[in-house]
């Protein structure tokens, strides 16, 4: 009995030692020399592996950071400025601060304003639908509503609204990684500056058709009427092929264009609710 126990213990110990030695020598033999800083940088990064930086994942990005000379062109959209600052500090470099951005959906043709002209009956995918035809409404530019952007989002920040059939961005969660921008075959989604306190103004339409055609397909389309361009005091609005575009670097958030737009295609976000001037005047009178 005792002999069995001793034999077992001894044989297992020897076996363990031999195997440990083999493991040790193989590990030595196949050792990969790697900059230890890569591991450190990786721990600083958020670890979402979203690919928003342009690298295949956080590890690759960390490698990129360590191996490059300066921090130019390297930015982690998820971690934002804080994380980039930490990375730069760790590597003993400086980094320029980047303006926070957010994904913006530039189509507001919901089911009412943009009626369907046919019924799509294929695989639920914008990419498949876009490769088949122009879309299930008369607008060739608008949202197809199959939710490729929602699928592409790693952060649960963009969701299809079943009522309007359009995606909606949760700006708290959006990290501006750009996955949805790439996923949208109609190129509707754009990354725009978040703006002070999240205030921003944009044209929520990318229809390049002539005014009449666009209007016929969608009640809230940009018809290229140039009214907004005329009213803009800061030269922020350009109109190319019947479509207005607001340059977020020039826009001073005066909101004049929003009122001017005859089709309500220009949107304002995160502004206080407007009180009509008449009401203001009446309140003052009292």
């Amino acid at each position: 009995m005792t002999a069995t126990i001793i034999f077992t213990i001894a044989s297992l110990t020897i076996l363990g030692l031999v195997l440990a030695l083999i493991l040790y020598f193989t590990a030595q033999k196949f050792k990969v020399v790697e900059d230890p800083r890569i591991d450190e940088v990786e721990t600083i990064l958020p670890g979402a592996n979203c690919g928003g930086c342009g690298y295949t994942g956080c590890r690759a990005f960390a490698e990129g950071c360590v191996n490059s000379e300066s921090m130019d062109g390297l930015f982690c959209p998820v971690g934002g400025n804080d994380v980039m600052k930490k990375v730069a500090e760790y590597l003993g470099r400086t980094v320029a601060e980047k303006v926070p951005q957010v994904a913006v959906v530039r189509c507001n043709g919901n089911c009412d304003s943009r009626p369907k002209s046919n019924n799509y009956d294929g695989y639920t995918s914008c990419a498949v639908m876009a490769s088949l035809y122009a879309g299930d409404t008369d607008c060739r530019y608008g949202c197809l509503g199959q939710g490729d952007c929602e699928l592409s989002c790693e952060f649960d920040a963009i969701k299809m609204n079943p009522r309007t059939g359009l995606p909606e961005v949760d700006e708290e969660k959006c990290t501006a990684c750009g996955a949805c921008v790439k996923a949208c075959p109609k190129m509707i989604i754009e990354l725009r500056n978040k703006g002070p306190k999240g205030k921003r103004i944009f044209v929520s339409c990318i229809n390049k058709d002539k005014g009449g055609v666009a209007r016929k397909a969608c009640a809230v389309a940009c018809i290229g009427c140039t009214k907004c361009q005329k009213v803009c005091a800061y030269d922020a609005i350009t109109i190319t092929s019947n479509l207005a575009y607001i340059d977020y670097n020039k826009c001073k958030l005066c909101r004049k264009c929003v009122v001017e737009c005859p089709t309500n295609a220009i949107w304002e976000v995160n502004f206080p609710v407007r009180v009509p001037k008449k009401v203001v005047a009446e309140v003052e009178k009292q």
Partner: peptide, 12 residues
């Protein structure tokens, strides 16, 4: 299953 829909896309 929409086999061809997805295959056609990835074939491209």
């Amino acid at each position: 299953i929409p086999l061809l829909d997805t295959i056609r896309l990835s074939k491209g």
